[in-house]
Simulated assay, not measured.
Amino acid sequence: MMITQMNYFKIKLMFFSIAMLCSTWFTGFANVADSRDSSFKTEDIAKIMKRVADWQFNTWHTKGFNHRKADWTNGACYTGIFALGNMKGNEKYLKALVDIGNDVGWNTGHIRFYADDYCVGQTYAQLYSKYREQKMITPFTLLADSIVAAPHDEPLNWRNNIQKREWAWCDALFMAPPSLAYLSTATGNQKYLDMASKLWWKTTDFLYDPAERLYFRDESYFNKKEKNGAKVFWSRGNGWVLGGLVRVLENMPENHHDRERFIKLYKDMLARIVRLQQPDGSWHASLLDPASFPVKEMSGTGFFCYAMAWGLNKGLLDEKTYLPVVKKSWVALTSAVHPDGKLGYVQPIGASPDKVDANSTEVYGVGAFLLSGVEIYKYMKAHPKAR
Rank of each mutant, 00 (worst) to 15 (best):
W55M: 03
K164C: 09
Y208F: 15
T361F: 12
K95I: 05
A368Q: 11
Y379W: 14
D280G: 09
N359R: 10
W167F: 09
E260M: 11
V374I: 12
N313M: 08
L142V: 00
K202I: 06
Q190Y: 03
C119R: 09
L317K: 07
L371T: 12
D117W: 00
G85V: 00
V241E: 13
A53P: 13
Y182D: 01
P177D: 07
D117Q: 12
D44I: 10
S372G: 08
W200I: 01
F293A: 05
M175A: 07
S23A: 13
K224C: 08
L333E: 12
M195W: 02
P324L: 04
F26H: 09
C305H: 03
P290Q: 02
L193D: 05
K12S: 14
N157P: 00
F26S: 05
E254C: 01
G281N: 08
S179D: 08
T185I: 01
V104M: 14
E43Q: 12
M49P: 07
D153M: 01
E319A: 15
A382R: 10
F304S: 02
R272C: 06
C170A: 14
F113W: 07
V325C: 10
Y131T: 05
A358N: 06
P177R: 08
P294S: 06
R217F: 13
K69M: 15
N228L: 01
F15Q: 12
G367P: 12
D145F: 01
S329K: 05
A53F: 03
A382F: 02
T185C: 02
E362Q: 14
